[in-house]
Design a protein around this nucleic acid. Sequence first.
DNA 1: ATAGTTTTGTGATATTCGTCACATTGTATA
DNA 2: TATACAATGTGACGAATATCACAAAACTAT
Lengths: 225, 225
Amino acid sequence: MESDCSLCPYISVAEAKLDGCQLKQLSENHIVVGFKKGDSIIKQGTYSTNIIFLRKGLVKIHITGPYSEQIVKLAKPPTYLGLPTTFGAKVNQYSITALEDCEVCFIDITVFRNLLKESEHFSYEIIQALCRYEIESFRRCANRTQKLTRGNLADVLLDFANNIFQSDVFIVPISQTEIGNLIDTSRESVSRMLSEFEKDGIIRTTGKQMEIINKKSLELISQNG
Amino acid sequence: MESDCSLCPYISVAEAKLDGCQLKQLSENHIVVGFKKGDSIIKQGTYSTNIIFLRKGLVKIHITGPYSEQIVKLAKPPTYLGLPTTFGAKVNQYSITALEDCEVCFIDITVFRNLLKESEHFSYEIIQALCRYEIESFRRCANRTQKLTRGNLADVLLDFANNIFQSDVFIVPISQTEIGNLIDTSRESVSRMLSEFEKDGIIRTTGKQMEIINKKSLELISQNG
DNA sequence: ATAGTTTTGTGATATTCGTCACATTGTATA
DNA sequence: TATACAATGTGACGAATATCACAAAACTAT
């Protein structure tokens, strides 16, 4: 499936800096691929041969740590996936898996490099994006390692509500085991703490659906552990 | 103090891609500044107005976490410092402090941006460097959060010996408190474990000097916690 | 040198959280 | 609908490590 990037509603900030001719290059050298929930989009250890742009659906970025799987972060559109790998290493340094049905653009790396060359605005936007990612990951790591588990769990729920779904009612997109992998704790602890939050009237759960009732409390827990 | 970049022995990989004229721009628009051990080179929260290149001396990159100071990593020359901040945010997102006497180039940001514009090779190298940093920080974070403290401490010592000083005998450049901030543990635990390592004949310490006697053991501890 | 400050060593105790075990519920598929 | 498999809830227990307390040592600056 090929499509005209100049008409695409999911275009990235960087791509918005391209002119018509450059967008045409992009249009002619990418394909849009659908992934089903659970599908692997990038697999750690395989060669990375394309630039990947997420235009629809939620994904998790995860790496095989020394002992267990670590979910680095969840990502939602519009965002490039795997840029660090593509430019910084030959093989993928992490895996990306679809948490919902996704649509993804595979962009030819030669074309992408050419665009970096041709458009200084484009490459500047990419540099900026990379810089923001890195700052974000410093902070995320500091939080994860310093906060108590309670605080980290609160952060995850706030991230769901404030960023990912932008609603205080949402379907939790990952299992408790995965939440554990995200905040470096065990499934059991996640379960216990969610029960606590529910008992304390902070959240209400119905199956996979969760409603945040008392966001103030969650924010306090996020701050004070 | 101004100097001719084309003669500088500390030039970065990216700068090596510049032509004579571009290097001249760089030469004319940067100053070299010396910092004493303990001096603050970048302070979190202040405006970032220059590109900073470390050409001599060891530094620590640290951020104020939710509870305590977190040392993100140690950095040695040749490397840019604070690139992420300069392009991704207006104010510095972390602090950088000299652990030894340092020499640092302050490069005018407009000139640097201009070089990014003019030289695709230069900007590509910068992109690559940013990508490598990010991959590295994913991995570092996964290690830190998953490994037991013993394993993390072993990693720090191996990093000193293999990367930073490239010798199995070195002067430990940071205090035990700082080692604790680096691997997210308490000063006391660091002290106890170093004593253990010494008792087990893995290291020998004489004041601030440390000698790694049994690197194999350290590597095993790094792997198995 | 010496007083003051920082760094380090070490014991006792408390806390957090992981692990194991098993019951229960939910979900997918034949 | 029945069956299997995945996800979740919950108790008991133990391991790792933080915290507190204080002493000793090392470093710094007047």
